[in-house]
Amino acid sequence: MESPERVELPAAFEDADVDVLVQLIADMMERVMAHNDQIPLSPESLTRFHSRTAPGISILDYLRRIVRFTKAERACLLITLHYIDQISARMPAFVLSSLTCHRFVIAAICVSSKCLCDAFCSNSVYAKVGGIPVAELNVLEREFLRIIDWNLTCTGEVLQEYYVNLVRQFSKGGYVISDAQSYSSLSSDSDMDTEFSPTSSPAPTPQPVMQTLHPHSSGNVPSTSRREPSTFLIDTATLAPEAPQPPTLEQNMAFAALQQEHAQELESESDMDTAR
């Protein structure tokens, strides 16, 4: 059987086709989610980004929908991975799963577009595209900014590193970066194998795939020489799966309480908007 034809991608992420970039990002997110979905949900792990059930649209189609209707730029898509690493480091309770991914992604792209782009959509547009009420997106946006402490940017080298590793770890194969020598410092196999190999754990349940790449210190972006293991720069295929467990009564009660508190906040915000 013949091996599939390999498609050459541009050396720089800025030149990559947007849909190819979406495929790469969605592929990695799906693998991380598949692992994290097997971790039993605990009441203390609930966050604003949790939904009661997983959305009926895949993250690939969700990202394509966002790109189609908001014209999200390449940097805004890639930096979403950086945000996940940063927030996972700041908020250990957050885990990228089928219950959190979609809401996190729409909030992240909404925020990154405002930060990185000269032109961007209103929250009402992002909310409609994301399939959530605008008041809910406002709450998610505030929570996102609070957790990440307004550290919304990173260097182009960091985004390029995500791009190189997404191509290398694409589960379907078939993509290769042209002129790889130009980015040897980013894509050296020996360098990556040494710094980004996941470590095994004796714990009886899978551990969340959520480490930081570039933790901020006093608002400054540290040198790449100080980088640490990252969610998206490791091979998730090496993580041992375990059968998922249904939520307990305590978890369901905690989730219901969180949802009720969230609903009260949305109602309060709606009343304030009406009063204005």
Rank of each mutant, 00 (worst) to 15 (best):
E2C: 04
V7G: 04
L9I: 15
L9R: 04
F13E: 15
E14D: 13
E14C: 08
D15K: 10
A16G: 02
D19A: 12
L21M: 15
V22F: 04
V22P: 10
L24G: 09
I25T: 04
I25H: 08
A26K: 03
A26H: 02
M28T: 15
R31N: 05
V32Y: 09
N36V: 12
D37I: 14
I39V: 14
P40G: 07
L41C: 14
P43F: 15
E44V: 00
L46M: 00
L46K: 01
I57M: 06
I59M: 09
D61F: 09
L63A: 13
R64S: 05
I66S: 08
V67C: 07
R68L: 12
E73N: 04
R74M: 10
R74A: 10
C76W: 07
C76T: 15
L78Y: 00
T80Q: 11
Q86C: 06
S88T: 12
A89V: 12
A89F: 14
H102G: 07
F104M: 07
V111E: 13
C115S: 00
C115A: 12
L116S: 02
F120K: 00
C121H: 12
G131T: 03
I132P: 00
A135C: 03
E136T: 10
V139G: 04
E141A: 00
R146L: 08
I148K: 05
I148T: 05
N151V: 01
L152G: 05
C154D: 11
Q160A: 10
Y162V: 08
N165V: 02
L166P: 04
L166N: 09
R168I: 14
Q169L: 11
S171D: 14
G174H: 15
I177H: 04
S178C: 13
Q181D: 13
S182R: 10
Y183I: 13
S184T: 12
S187W: 01
S188Y: 01
D189Y: 02
D189R: 09
F196S: 11
F196L: 07
S197M: 08
S200F: 01
S200Y: 02
P204Y: 00
P204V: 12
P206Q: 09
Q207D: 11
P208G: 06
P208D: 05
V209L: 10
V209Y: 11
Q211M: 01
T212F: 00
H214P: 09
H216M: 10
H216Y: 06
S217W: 06
G219D: 13
R227C: 08
T231P: 04
L233Y: 11
L233C: 04
D235T: 03
A237I: 06
T238N: 05
L239D: 09
L239N: 03
E242M: 05
Q259R: 03
H262M: 02
H262W: 01
E265L: 12
L266Y: 01
L266D: 04
E269V: 07
E269Y: 03
M272E: 03
M272S: 15
R276V: 03
